[in-house]
Amino acid sequence: MFSMVHGDIERNYPSVLDHIYRFRHSYFVETLGWEACRRPDNRERDQFDGPGSIHVVGRDEGHIVSYARLLPTTRPHLLSHLYPELMQGAKAPTGHRIYEWTRQSVLPRKREHGAANAFSNAFMGAVARVAEALDLEGLLVQTHPALVGRLLDTGWDVETLALPTLYAGALLVPVYARITARTLEAADAAFAAWPGSRLAFHRPP
């Protein structure tokens, strides 16, 4: 139900990528109202998408219901090229074992009530397992401070890289979240709490 898609998916899995871009358009543009990302073809993609991107996808009966994108920090990524001002002069860590966690999304119907949080937790657990499978040290995250608590609660060792500031009308804080043994324990617990949770790795042939 969760899968990691990476490699040159544009060539190898064009239809998967099309579903991903359509899901992102419907979630970020039509649901969250990110007008700057609106595209006439209803596919949300930006200059950071490319063969280096890693996609974590959650599906329910074949439909995408949750999504996250991990970008290599050895290339231009959001914190370095979209809003470097979030760092307020400080320098963010980058490297082969550090990716940037972006476009985190879980369909509202999947997180409406108490039990639905279990799905959202399991999806976050899937992201942690993907990071572990890639032997990453940690992930850069830019988020509302409220979600930093969620990362801490799920065992990430979160380093605040700069103070939260207003970005496009909302508070945003850049953090570096390192994976710990507790992160993986929390992922296991989250998978156990959402029956049927498993993570598949799709690699290009």
Binding site: P145, V148, D153
Partner: peptide, 18 residues
């Protein structure tokens, strides 16, 4: 900046208390 710092401190404290 002080408000932002207290905000973050509270988040870490709440998570530890939990």
């Amino acid at each position: 900046d002080e408000q932002a710092a207290l905000h973050m401190i509270a988040i870490y404290a709440a998570s530890t208390a939990k």
